[in-house]
Design a protein around this nucleic acid. Structure first.
Lengths: 136, 136, 136, 136
DNA sequence: GTGGTCTAGACCACA
DNA sequence: GTGGTCTAGACCACA
């Protein structure tokens, strides 16, 4: 229980529940709060706690397994997989740039300017680095 | 206006061609190189120049129309729609933050750190501001 | 209707139904019987014909979409996506070799020797080439 | 027997290490370099040599034991189990054909044609036969 | 019409 | 105990 990872859900948020769950797992891993080998809460445990259907949790876990983010430990549960980085640095940078271009497009659609983007991103990255240091 | 904007296509780039076209229109609008009222190259012109199927171009334009990015000027072509910004500032910021969270997740998956994200994003934003000034 | 693609299912086969469906789509694409842009039978149509639950068909389609094999054409159905080949030739060969190693391992476990493997594979590849020629 | 067989590991190879180890044991058995009754390197020996966690080696061995590939010789180590071939010839051929169908699908996805598949597989099978002759 | 999400609940394999 | 598969059926967005 101590410090163990817990899901939350905004039933009224736009995104489907299973995507919210997936997003949380990925973000926790990116921030270092979940590490390779860590167990995730079981399907049933999560479903009961969030008052949602076990299938919904299972769907999130299955997709994450297919994506290589989680590994199934038969009879035990789902664990965070060892991250594998593939491809040349240039290619990986290009992939991120493509997503950053989407950020720019989205910001413009929302009427938010360059400074706004930076002032939103900076604290998010800072918080990330802080966690990593704190957890080391 | 004619000749102002041209599409390009990477046939091997992973993303479907119509999505590449959509992305370019949006990015050009975000960077101010395309403004409300500007005409886009015609379906036929684009299809001939890029040696792709006219249906592909038409599909991109139709989806952008549905999204409110373009307006159909009957018999004349497609024009950039007047941008409408909806929702409270907080909500719009939250929407962008959600996309920025995806950036963080993606960067981590690709093995790129905080500094890397900033050093990729900064020149992209700078280029944007430069264009806006130049085009004003 | 003419020549349109149809699914079949072996309820007693080891593999789950949704995986059987996925496998068939992929194989039909590999053999050239399904080409980029072709529409697949609708979820409901398939479910009725095979007497299975629509969710099961939908699951197969969703995974194939996530894998980039199919694309959703909103309101119309699922279509075969344009195939994109990524990575250097050496890397792609290595990936296939890794699967071929599994074939060898499996053959041994089943007590089938080298000649047996070749005499099973040859007609399968020959049939493939024949179809491609015939459909050109 | 000691020193007969050694593991290797590609830390960056995508597949989890325990799966790489499992794959190697199976391949060595298939190629005749490991025979029923042979001892495998101990968990500690392997872990030290490859600089990996002993749990990782142990996990590979446990799964192989569960699959009937290895047998635990209490206090001594793991030995290669006697292979048992089950089922009618037709059924075993069908099982292999299903895996060969996956090869065809994968080859197509990777943009490799029929000839390519054969020219990759042939030397692999040839090497196998050579080893079997040499080791007899 | 199209596919997507979610629920409630049965049954399965694996450990 | 763990997750996976499948059903029956409701309701949704999009076109």
């Amino acid at each position: 229980m101590y410090g163990k990872f817990r899901f939350y859900v905004y039933p009224s948020a736009g995104a489907p529940i299973y995507q919210q769950l997936m997003q949380q797992v990925k973000f926790q891993i990116a921030s270092g709060r979940l590490s390779p080998g860590d167990y995730l809460p079981s399907v049933r445990e999560t479903a009961t706690e969030l008052q949602i259907n076990p299938m919904t949790v299972s769907k999130a876990y299955s997709i994450l397994e297919r994506e290589g983010v989680l590994t199934r430990d038969r009879g035990q549960g789902m664990i965070v997989a060892t991250q594998t980085t593939r491809g040349a640095l240039k290619e990986r940078r290009d992939e991120l740039k493509s997503l950053l271009r989407e950020v720019i497009v989205k910001a413009h659609q929302l009427g938010l300017d360059t400074n706004e983007v930076m002032s939103l991103l900076k604290p998010m990255l800072a918080e990330l680095d802080k966690d990593k240091v704190a957890l080391k």
